[in-house]
């Protein structure tokens, strides 16, 4: 505990007892502090994923694949065995892992550039082969790592550094709904779109991640959890404003909820 923490956090000894603990940082996250900008949804999803892995007791059975993009360093934070993949190739790398270690739980963690632009082929084909993977897709509609260029998922009219007059769909194409696209494939078992802009949505996202991993445990096929997220720095907004952007602009175009749900038997 640092000095600041000691001074500012007087601990109520009658409440702060292990039996009354309702939330703490999951031990599956490493000690490393997130490099993400304040308010970034990436870290929220990292945290949720590690909560689920911890709760399911699969830390030793899980292998993750980090993408290229803002979350390239995911392996510094997620306390499971990880591989860092070339840009867009996470689903291929994950296929390689899963095929030789089918008993393990394998996930990829990818942004919209990695998954829906440069890695579209890898994503579509892994999905179509019905690879038993959980693909976590963070859609914030913009390129974060390279600072604010247009993503395939950027909204129509959205101003980015490479669409300075707003995305013109006639020349720059339409925002890509990758989840809907993949949901059509027979190898795909579960597709859902969630968000992390409110506490309620965070809860639902966690549940979705849990479902994805549980389906994988049963080898039911390809699972995709899309998380509509924010990018305060590149949207040039405060974190709160960026979450409002998510609620008012992103979610209307990328509606939340399950897109492909397994039939209940």
């Amino acid at each position: 505990m640092s000095e600041l923490n000691e001074i500012m956090n007087p601990i109520k000894e009658n409440i702060c007892l292990p039996e009354f603990l309702v939330y703490e940082r999951p031990d599956t996250l490493t000690e490393q502090e997130f490099h993400y900008c304040p308010g970034c949804g990436h870290s929220t999803v990292h945290k949720l994923l590690m909560e689920v892995v911890s709760e399911m007791g699969i830390v030793g059975d899980t292998i993750g694949v980090a993408p290229v993009g803002c979350s390239v360093f995911a392996y510094h934070y997620l306390g499971v065995d990880m591989q860092q993949a070339a840009h867009g190739r996470a689903c291929a790398v994950a296929t390689g892992i899963k095929r030789v270690m089918p008993e393990k739980i394998v996930f990829t963690y990818q942004g919209d550039g990695d998954l829906a632009a440069i890695g579209t082929a890898e994503t579509v084909h892994a999905a179509n082969r019905g690879e038993n993977l959980l693909v976590i897709f963070i859609n914030n509609g913009i390129y974060g790592m390279t600072s604010g260029q247009m993503a395939p998922t950027s909204l129509e009219g959205m101003v980015t550094t490479t669409s300075p007059y707003g995305r013109d769909v006639l020349t720059q194409g339409y925002p890509l709904k990758i989840s809907e696209l993949l949901a059509h494939l027979p190898g795909v078992y579960y597709v859902t779109r969630q968000a992390v802009n409110t506490a309620g949505n965070v809860r639902k996202t966690k549940k979705a991640l849990q479902r994805g991993l549980e389906y994988q445990k049963k080898n039911l096929g390809f699972c995709l959890v899309e998380v509509v997220s924010n990018c305060p720095s590149n949207l040039k907004m405060t974190p709160l404003e960026s979450n409002e952007f998510v609620a008012n602009q992103m979610i209307p175009f990328y509606p939340l909820g399950d897109i492909k749900v397994p039939e209940v038997k």
Partner: peptide, 28 residues
């Protein structure tokens, strides 16, 4: 962020949305 009032109910919403997982919550 600091605690400004002593009226926490331990609902953990703050911790859920905290991207950096820096909040621990107790509820009695």
């Amino acid at each position: 962020a600091i605690k400004a009032q002593d009226n926490c109910t331990g609902c953990a919403n703050c911790a859920l949305v905290c991207p950096d997982a820096v909040i621990t919550v107790y509820r009695k």
